[in-house]
């Protein structure tokens, strides 16, 4: 089977700093990583390949340096990497991103064989929207399974997939037809380390690099900033509340019960409410 996994290279969020004066993100020197949510998708794809045979293609859209993340994915065991890079893609919102990725997936299908499953992570740590996966599915007319906790079975002859999908109040066991798009839930597996052979192969592998034109984009105006219906008009730091917190003392002279008395003075109804709650336990 052929599986495509969409990944995104993101700045390591733990290391991001915001410029105190200009309110811009200081990206310089911030290391990049594969969006951690995508690793669950990648591992799920690799496991399916191991079980059913076939190939895993990883795809990313980003600057040329995003090749690093693709190479990393190859060391985990992916078979092929495709980098979609073009200045026309810059500034894309979720709608424009899903257009570019869907177009590239179609091209991957024509070049390397039609995918049976397309995977994405649940969301990214920088954008956090969880909208690109469903967007790709819609554009490719694929069925979608989001928030998947487990793929229970794939029947390549009958062309069906069964999966457990997390919903608000429980788990749906869904069956649908291949090809489909799956967004994988976090914490559902653990990315493998990849062997020596994978590392060697990854180091030498050629990364398929496509411009918008190579990927078959027909309408540049649907890409990047131009293809994005949303516009970021204002970026700003949150304002502090008018008054800052009242700082109260905790010491021998002001022990915890004095603090609590202070608290109940501020919020007179709180004591009754807490007593009721405390009794419930």
């Amino acid at each position: 089977m052929h599986i495509v996994v969409c990944i995104k290279q993101v700045p390591d969020s733990a290391q991001i700093r915001v410029h105190p004066v200009t309110n811009t993100i200081m990206r310089q020197g911030v290391p990049t990583i594969i969006n951690p949510y995508d690793l669950f998708a990648l591992e799920a794809a690799l496991a399916l390949r191991d079980q059913h045979g076939g190939e895993v293609t990883v795809l990313t859209m980003g600057p040329p340096s995003a090749a690093d993340s693709l190479r990393k994915a190859l060391t985990f065991g992916a078979d092929r990497a495709v980098l979609l890079t073009d200045r026309f893609f810059a500034g894309a919102d979720t709608l424009a991103t899903s257009y570019a990725l869907a177009t590239a997936i179609r091209q991957i299908g024509e070049t390397f064989g039609a995918p049976d499953v397309v995977f994405t992570g649940k969301q990214t740590i920088d954008g956090d929207t969880a909208q690109v996966g469903p967007g790709i599915a819609k554009r490719l007319n694929l069925l979608q399974l989001t928030y998947v906790a487990k793929i229970s079975g794939i029947d390549l002859t009958g062309r069906t997939i069964t999966a457990e999908r997390r919903s608000e109040g429980g788990v749906q066991i869904l069956q649908t037809r291949l090809p489909c798009l799956v967004t994988m839930l976090e914490g559902t597996n653990e990315i493998r380390r990849g062997g020596m052979a994978d590392a060697l192969r990854a180091a030498r592998a050629e990364i398929v690099t496509w411009s918008a034109k190579d990927a078959g984009v027909e309408d540049i105006s649907k890409c990047g900033l131009r293809g994005s219906p949303t516009i970021v008009k204002r970026v700003f730091a949150p304002s502090a509340r008018a008054e800052k917190a009242v700082l109260v003392d905790f010491s021998e002279r002001a022990p915890a019960d004095a603090l609590i008395a202070d608290l109940f003075k501020r919020q007179p109804k709180l004591e009754d409410e807490l007593s009721t709650l405390a009794r419930g336990y």
């Binding site: 979720t94 929207t129 909208q131 469903p134 599915a137 608000e168 949303t230």
Partner: peptide, 23 residues
Amino acid sequence: ATTLGRDLAGSVATTLLTGLTAD
């Protein structure tokens, strides 16, 4: 922005080709 709402919003916005601001 629940599992249901996000699943649905992404599909509907892409079908309508309109903007969607999440969360």
